[in-house]
Design a protein around this nucleic acid. Structure first.
Lengths: 116, 116
DNA sequence: CATTTCACTTTCCTTTAGGAAAGTACTATA
DNA sequence: TATAGTACTTTCCTAAAGGAAAGTGAAATG
């Protein structure tokens, strides 16, 4: 009944990491969350705060993030109608990930510049 | 000389996060690093420890990770020749990211199951 | 001599991500 | 009346990611 695998199981870590990656995958999701958490609320503001993002990509990613309950789309019925994107409380749970990536990225860039 | 942007700058965070994402992007890189850090050294062992990965993808990602100095490919000149993949010390710097993703993924799965 | 193991590579194919450019419908402002 | 801003959508396209299946060459094992 014992298993005869010759490899070491790492599924305890691999599985949840993959679950997380599925939610925040791609180039743009974390940058958008960061922008919204920083306080950018309008479509155009978010777009301008993230260099290189196109409106098509932004619109698609905003929908994904809404589905995952990380942000919400709020329609304000003034005249003219305003649309605001706000972070959901659940977005705060991503802070440790964002901080870890930020720290690593900062250090990595330093490492690259030292070498070359 | 002041800037007249209407948005809030979040580049201090967005830029390093993007640098990090560029290195560990895709479905497979972190799972492979986790497997190698767990102690899997042989191609076939790594492959079997990560459900769903194909040899083509594994070969390609191992090369990428080697280039980023996260793992090294060691040829052991016994007869028969053995090829071992070992984590580089630099791989350890990814531990906070992996732990953050693992924690988040675990919690996320719990959240999903509670809801539905 | 046949089979198996190991570490891949090769081919073919589909899906997804992403970018460029233009357009749209509405409202506001000069 | 013309121009500009807002929040997108649409079309077209390329590149990269990823998967399935088979093959390869060397060496070991039965």
């Amino acid at each position: 009944m014992a298993n005869k695998m010759g490899y070491l199981s790492c599924l305890d870590t691999v599985k949840p990491v993959r679950d997380a990656i599925e939610v925040i995958n791609g180039k743009w999701k974390l940058p958008i969350i960061i922008s919204v958490m920083t306080g950018n609320e309008r479509f155009t503001d978010i777009q301008e705060s993230i260099p290189g993002i196109t409106p098509k990509v932004l619109a698609k990613e905003l929908k994904d993030l809404e589905q995952h309950q990380l942000i919400k789309r709020v329609v304000v019925d003034d005249y003219p109608v305003k649309i605001l994107y706000k972070p959901e409380p659940y977005a705060d749970t991503l802070t440790p990930i964002i901080e870890a990536l930020k720290g690593w990225g900062l250090n990595h860039r330093k490492k690259i510049f030292e070498k070359e």
